[in-house]
């Protein structure tokens, strides 16, 4: 850039190309300006996203921190959640999540493996499954809630229960998980599959020792997105895992999740706002912990199979 501009401004070239020179100059000024604008816009976008996240967390922390204490985590709610804590709700939430993960991970990884390793993209079944996944991913959560209620609670006779809620959330998390796993698997270089075949590894062994570990970060990312969507869910859970805030005795008991609790406190319980904020703070904390643990686990799984060169 620098030498160019000195040439165009050199006095020896003033006569004929002066017009061309000045347009070149303005073009360069423009280029510089638009470059700066572009950089500024990108920074601004990043700053805005970071700021809105910080704002949300700061607002929730500001309103909820006073209420948050060890006893808030270990006591059962009293007076519709205005007093007491959220111990029973935390337990229900974790149980629902456990059911979701236990169902979604094997099914999701299975479907993704089938899509990426055992089917051709253009085959009819793969196309149907892909369309089904795209549609599933776009379905509003209240529809999952009503479906879950009609299918799991009523048709399968599971009633309002943690199992019903977990299965409904698994349906919601599946498309995200499958997509992420599939893209992770297809990002594994084809040489690795040939290498595994050349070493005489069966397809299952190649998957277990090479392909899945290599795709582990992608699977984790998908799982976390799915869990994030699931744990924030109210509409799908009000009609499936339900509203009961007693300590669940089995997976067949109804149990209120954190998000349902927060919704109820902020909408139906006068004077429940502070407890709602504190519960929201716990929910965010829980998500951060789950994220950290999942990333740790996936790194360990990957490193135990694939030694870095």
């Amino acid at each position: 850039m620098q030498p160019d501009s000195s040439v165009s401004c050199a006095p020896g070239l003033m006569a004929a190309p002066s017009v061309a020179g000045s347009t070149l100059l303005t073009a360069q000024v423009h280029a510089k300006l638009s470059e700066r604008l572009f950089v500024a816009a990108v920074w601004l976008a990043a700053a805005l996203v970071a700021a809105s996240f910080l704002w949300i967390v700061a607002d929730i922390a500001f309103h909820g921190f006073a209420k948050l204490s060890w006893s808030f985590l270990t006591e059962a709610p009293r007076s519709s959640g205005r007093k007491g804590g959220i111990s029973t709700i935390l337990v229900s939430t974790l149980l629902i999540l456990a059911v979701t993960v236990a169902v979604a991970v094997p099914l999701g990884v299975g479907v993704a493996v089938w899509l990426s390793e055992f089917s051709r993209r253009s085959s009819r079944t793969a196309r149907v499954i892909n369309i089904a996944l795209d549609v599933l991913a776009g379905i509003p959560s209240i529809v999952f809630g009503l479906f879950g209620n009609a299918f799991f609670c009523v048709f399968l006779g599971l009633g309002f229960s943690i199992v019903s809620g977990g299965l409904t959330l698994a349906c919601m998390a599946l498309p995200i998980l499958i997509r992420a796993t599939e893209s992770g698997l297809s990002a594994v270089p084809h040489d690795w599959r040939q290498g595994a075949a050349a070493l005489g590894l069966s397809k299952a062994a190649a998957l277990w020792h090479v392909l899945l570990p290599a795709a582990a970060p992608a699977i984790t990312a998908g799982l976390l997105l799915g869990i994030g969507r699931a744990v924030a869910e109210t509409a799908a859970l009000v009609f499936t895992s339900g509203y009961v805030d007693r300590m669940p005795e089995s997976l067949m008991d109804s149990g209120r999740s954190l998000a349902v609790h927060i919704y109820d406190l902020s909408m139906n319980v006068s004077g429940g706002d502070q407890a709602a904020y504190a519960s929201a703070l716990v929910l965010i904390g829980l998500l951060i912990v789950i994220n950290a643990v999942a990333i740790q686990l996936s790194n360990r799984f990957m490193k135990s199979r694939i030694q870095p060169a």
Binding site: S79, S80, G81, F160, Y243, V244, D245, R246, D264, M267, N268, V269
Partner: peptide, 17 residues
Amino acid sequence: TITGASTAAPLVAEIAK
């Protein structure tokens, strides 16, 4: 099993307890 209005639910849940 009791179901219905979300306005009434917090009260009825406390009565139930």
